[in-house]
Design a binder for these strands. Sequence first.
DNA 1: AAATGCTACCTTGCATTACCAGTTTCTGGG
DNA 2: CCCAGAAACTGGTAATGCAAGGTAGCATTT
Lengths: 109, 109
Amino acid sequence: MNASNTQIQMRKGLLEFCILHIISRGEVYASDMIDELTEAQMIVVEGTLYPLLNRLKKSGLATYKWIESESGPPRKYYTITEEGKSFLATLDQTWESLVHSIQFITTKH
Amino acid sequence: MNASNTQIQMRKGLLEFCILHIISRGEVYASDMIDELTEAQMIVVEGTLYPLLNRLKKSGLATYKWIESESGPPRKYYTITEEGKSFLATLDQTWESLVHSIQFITTKH
DNA sequence: AAATGCTACCTTGCATTACCAGTTTCTGGG
DNA sequence: CCCAGAAACTGGTAATGCAAGGTAGCATTT
């Protein structure tokens, strides 16, 4: 049990939340997402992202289309679905109440 | 993939953080912790809590002593160790940066 | 055109975690 | 003595992120 491990554990389950937010803002493909997440200091690797995107697609929360690239292989550009939008609204509430719960516990004395 | 499952996933990894905070405030035993967590709307069952407490003990972050109860079997009252305190300080920072990361992503447009 | 390197997508196995549904141990009262 | 309740504990299961490797298309260089 060490800090870095706990850091990973704390982030678990929040990635899906972050990804849905990112694709809700417009069409992006995997590398774009990794860039955004890295900028927000939520380090993610491909082996984590691709299975997650497949889950979102299979659940009907996200969809994608192939778009040719000017340089390199074609890319999957993801967008959020209507179902994904309402799901994301639920996750927003979940996050809010989670923050409140933690604050309730950590500020008690 | 549904909302309740994601809600569970979001909470994972934060329990350890909450437990350390609770025992850092004084001697408590399992039922006390569950009461506090329930009050903060972080529902936890015993089967989840006991293995976590054993991990904390084994890692040297928490310790306990048996105290006789006026009614019923004796109880394990947990307290945080010095090592646990410094670890908790790290987790506080982790939580802070995590909140900032999420905020960075969710408020972008 | 062949070789190399880069980009993008995908898959597998591993370690960790919380949850659920029980089980054990202990105390005190009828 | 027996039973109810409280407290602690124990597999089994499902889900997750990560590390590592694999596949394929495109571009550049030779």
